[in-house]
Design a protein around this nucleic acid. Sequence first.
DNA 1: GTTCTATTCAATGATTTACTTGAATAGAAC
DNA 2: GTTCTATTCAAGTAAATCATTGAATAGAAC
Lengths: 220, 220
Amino acid sequence: MSDHRAKAALYDALAESAKALANGRRMELVDVLAQGERSVEELADEIQQTTANTSQHLQRLLRAGMVESRREGTRIYYSLSSAIVADLWRVLRRAAQEHVEGLEQLAADYLGDRSTLPTITRDDLLARLRDGDVVVLDVRPEAEYAAGHIRGAISVPINELESRLGTIPDGTDVVAYCRGPYSAFADQAVRALGKQGVTAARLEDGFPEWAEARLPIARP
Amino acid sequence: MSDHRAKAALYDALAESAKALANGRRMELVDVLAQGERSVEELADEIQQTTANTSQHLQRLLRAGMVESRREGTRIYYSLSSAIVADLWRVLRRAAQEHVEGLEQLAADYLGDRSTLPTITRDDLLARLRDGDVVVLDVRPEAEYAAGHIRGAISVPINELESRLGTIPDGTDVVAYCRGPYSAFADQAVRALGKQGVTAARLEDGFPEWAEARLPIARP
DNA sequence: GTTCTATTCAATGATTTACTTGAATAGAAC
DNA sequence: GTTCTATTCAAGTAAATCATTGAATAGAAC
């Protein structure tokens, strides 16, 4: 093989990692899988696509080594194959945030105006957890809480929030978190809590980032 | 805009960063640009493509915000727009290394068998630089050395190595480095030096990684 | 065995991408 | 002004990608 053909082949292979994530639907899949394993049907529902299409995207990720699968009876569960994939997703997100123009507007279209939404950093939340003067709500679906959550957080899936508003004691400060900076659950929760007069803030990113930073978590 | 359409649009935009790098030629471009700015013609020569094609790839990177350009007379120089892009390239490389199957073989096809090639880590080189018992050769093209290099390294572009073999004092240990783990210059240098009986090793990665780790460098 | 369910496979068409070619442009040198 | 050079633009083609559809498969329940 000639030298420049060999070089091209090598860099083509390196580009495969990027190609695997070079699609909006697969980005969504990785975002969800960063919370824990999921079946094809659940994932299809998350990204609002047919199972056939979702299956094909998953197989693309599988071929690139980004995810693994295991069969359990009739279901097949997919999960990220390593922490590097979550890293990659994080760095891509940061690059897009920095460099893709129009991203902020698109984020606002989906998530609403965040400028008025109280936000708290990981470090601040950590300090307040140590002081014990804050209630932390994990507003992701229950299965994701079960797969791992911020230590001390309680599970209040976003669609149960309304019915459980009463259980939040008066006068406590609340912090809500979900999957990550582009996930809408925590935003919804903070807005809903705010309307009820509860002092609430959104953790600026989600559980995967908290875990990656080696802050205190609880896992099964 | 309906909720799931807005979500899809947001994640499509996030995927743009990945798409920008989802091509072997653009990966090569980023690898070269991580060493410093270059004109279109130089870049075209590096990646063995026509200038028209190279220009188009560069404009794809430009649209994604990954690179910047400036005009100087009749030439246009491109450069990475931020350290995040170099980060992204690094993480992508690591993901590919971990997960893309067949990559090792392709690397061997291009770079030759590295298993017999003495290699040294950044930390080891740092220690030896402090002890002062090693000669460090920057075997990249001179312009890249000029744009920044490991402090204490001397510039010996790979195509001048042969003619300058004599200037290396007997009995000294040599470490050669170049652009990064998938760049061939340092390998060539170490092999050539080895044949001449010089004790030589390849730094496991290149100047950008050394600089990113905040190890001692010299810049103009 | 049949039926049911979750997933994959295979074929199709619309869209995007990559490279090529040759023409257009912008600045420098004359 | 003309000529030269580096780059971009525009048009065309082959290939890859993506969503859709309906059929095939693999295991569970009966």
